[in-house]
Amino acid sequence: MMHRSEKVWLFLSFGMIIGFMLITGYQTFALEMGPPSYGERIDPQKVDETAPFDNPGIKQIGEDEYEVVMTLQVFSFTPSKIEVPAGSTVHFILTSKDVVHGFQVAETNLNAMVVPGYVQKITQKFDNPGEYLVLCNEYCGAGHQMMSTTITVK
């Protein structure tokens, strides 16, 4: 019932899907490039009293390694204006104090959903100096288009 060429086509199609699976799996589990999936729970109405979000800010935790504890709320990021030296790896620990927000840094692969009640983690190495635009990419209200800040890499 199937033409030979169709069998070849379907074989290639299936192979392509499996190829995507293999590459994705290799990147996720061997290279640790998986999507941000941290899931610690937090009371979304008591973010300010819960460690580490009672003290948001940037902290050096090793040579060329920084940790940024950040809260997202309408329509701002706390802390805003982050500065790190070029070549540093930055670990972001994020949560939301109200609605669902997005954490995206243009020109990098930083992109994570920040959902109230959950702690999200994502890491990025900043090699090139410059000013990076941080923005909220999940619609969060009337001032959504203003919700942004910058990361300066020197």
Binding site: I17, F20, T24, G34, S37, A112, M113, V114, V115, Q120
Partner: peptide, 23 residues
């Protein structure tokens, strides 16, 4: 896929479920 609270293996298995529709 980039939501918190869902582990990486679970997300990985869902890649297959999504890609399967491509077939």
């Amino acid at each position: 896929i980039i939501d918190p609270g869902i582990s990486e293996p679970v997300k990985y298995m869902h890649v297959f479920m999504s890609l399967a529709i491509g077939f």
